[in-house]
C-alpha cells in the first residue's frame, strides 16, 4: 500500500514521515518517533493509557490514524517537563501525592489531566473524576491521582497546597 507523507509538530518538534494509512497514531509515536511514553493498555479504546494531546484535545492515540494527525500539534508525556528537566506541576503532583504505583496509566493520566486543567483550572473533585473517566488505573484506586491533580491545580493557580500524601 502506498505510503502517505505526514507532517506533525510533536512536543515542539516538526517531524515529517511516510506512513501507511492504516498506521495508528500510537504506533507512529512509539515505533517511528521512539516516543514510548504513551502506552498500549487495551488497544480497544477503553483504557486511556495511549492518551496524547492533539490540537488541544485529549485523544486515545490507538483510535486515531497517523494520517488524521497530519498538520496537528501533538503533546505526549515526553513533552510535559521543561527542557531543563524541571517537572511539570502535574508530574510533581503525582510524585508528591503518590499518584502512581506501577506507573502504566500515568503518562495518559497526566496528559489528560493537563488538558482538563486547561479547560477547568480549579476543578472540583467531581469534575476531576468525571474528567479522567476515560483513563483506567488498576493500581491506585484513583484517590491519590485525584489528589495529585488537585496539587497541580493549586500549584498552577498559586493557591496554598497540601505538601505531601498522608
Amino acid at each position: 500500500m502506498a505510503k502517505t507523507h505526514v507532517k506533525m509538530n510533536v512536543n515542539g518538534r516538526e517531524v515529517e514521515s511516510l506512513v501507511e494509512p492504516r498506521t495508528l497514531l500510537i504506533h507512529h509515536l512509539r515505533e517511528n518517533l521512539n516516543l514510548t511514553g504513551p502506552h498500549i493498555g487495551c488497544d480497544t479504546t477503553h483504557c486511556g493509557a495511549c492518551t496524547v494531546d492533539m490540537n488541544g484535545k485529549s485523544v486515545k492515540s490507538c483510535t486515531v490514524f497517523a494520517v488524521q494527525a497530519d498538520g496537528a500539534m501533538i503533546t505526549t508525556i515526553e513533552g510535559m517537563a521543561a527542557p531543563d528537566g524541571t517537572l511539570h506541576a502535574l508530574q510533581e503532583g503525582f510524585r508528591m501525592m503518590h499518584g502512581l504505583q506501577c506507573g502504566f496509566c500515568t503518562p495518559g493520566m497526566i496528559v489528560r489531566a493537563h488538558r482538563l486543567l486547561q479547560e477547568i483550572p480549579n476543578p472540583t473533585e467531581e469534575e476531576i473524576r468525571f474528567g479522567i473517566a476515560g483513563n483506567l488505573c488498576r493500581c491506585t484506586g484513583y484517590q491519590n491521582i485525584v489528589k495529585a491533580i488537585q496539587y497541580a491545580a493549586a500549584k498552577l493557580s498559586g493557591a496554598p497546597m497540601q505538601e505531601a500524601a498522608e
Binding site: S58, V59, T63, V64, G131, I132, G134
Partner: peptide, 9 residues
Amino acid sequence: IADPQVRYM
C-alpha cells in the same frame, strides 16, 4: 456518552 477522549473525537 463514552468518556472525554471519545467525546472530543
